[in-house]
Amino acid sequence: MEEELMQIKNSAVSMIIEATDQKELEEIKLQFLGRSGKLTLTLKEIVKVPVERRAAVGQLANEVKRVIEETIKNHESRIKNQESKTKIEKIDVTNPGIKPDIGRLHPLTQVLYEVVDIFKQIGFQVADGPEIETDHYNFEVLNIHKDHPARDTQQTLYLDTRGSKSDPGKIILRTHGSNMQGRIMETTRPPVRAIYPGKVFRYEQVDVSHGFEFWQLEGLAVDKNLTLTDLFGTMSYVIKEFFGLDTKVKFVSHNFPFTEPSAETYMSCTVCKGKGCSFCKHSGWVEILGCGMIHPNVLKAVGYDSQKVSGFAWGMGFSRMVTLKYQMDDLRLLTNPDLRILEQF
């Protein structure tokens, strides 16, 4: 009897394992556990077992029943899964996907990572410095002395010095990232290659292309034998890497107190590719950065010998790079926290 029960269990379990659909499972269930199933019929024979062994056989029979039931139950879920997997073909795959719950990085950050990577490839390191700055680092070190007319082009926000030891008018919000030029060069020796992205502040009324807070990405390189052609080459490389290899770049002479020679840099308009459109005021060109060979007075101010080392420096309107890249027509979009804007990037 015991042997018979074990056989029933084994054959039932092996059949269940091999079953491929729900119908087959139902049949197996009926075959073993049904009214005239093998196990049911066997159990009816239990009366024939001698009394002293009946309890043990009964226990075994119950165990066999439990194992069969449990195995069926386990495999029911396996079969259900299999069936649902084959069923997937029946759903409407043209339904829209379910949007994952992920946020977006601000376009400024995305562009920043990209530009930082480009500069890193050519040996530049990234620095970050103060926004609350002294007149000294923002202007004096850079050969922009008090009463220099260039100060007109960088209208300054002055900080309230009350309650402090600072002289009125001497502590400002930096008007450009070039404040880092002096700070970096003073504390390191050439060769040095650095970029310093960050926020700058101007006393300026806000409109589509101006703001009192915006981002710049400035940088410098100083070494023996750096040349104007190196400056032009580096700027062109970065602009083309970022905006695309078919971007045209041109340099025109300009004047900055902290560089000599100085250049203003233009690139072909991102919207019309140089044909001329309203975005570029129909010139085909947009201004992207100012640059030049670091002025000997600046090198001298930081303790470098301008006869032994030379360098170049530049400042690009970083906010502008972002708006140019994405063809945004208003600088203010970058400080607008509207998710309808942010989710586009």
Binding site: L112, Y113, V116, I122, G123, Q125, V126, A127, D128, G129, M180, R183, I184, T187, T188, P191, V192, R193, A194, Y196, A221, D223, K224, N225, L226, T227, L228, T229, D230, F232, G233, T234, S236, Y237, K250, F251, V252, S253, A263
Partner: peptide, 25 residues
């Protein structure tokens, strides 16, 4: 004419010591 100049890349050694005000983005 600035645009008559060739364009080159700096050929000096790449600085290896960490610059002051270094920031790790």
């Amino acid at each position: 004419g600035y645009n008559n100049f060739p364009k080159t890349m700096p050929i000096g050694e790449i600085p290896t010591k960490q610059i002051p005000y270094f920031k790790d983005y």
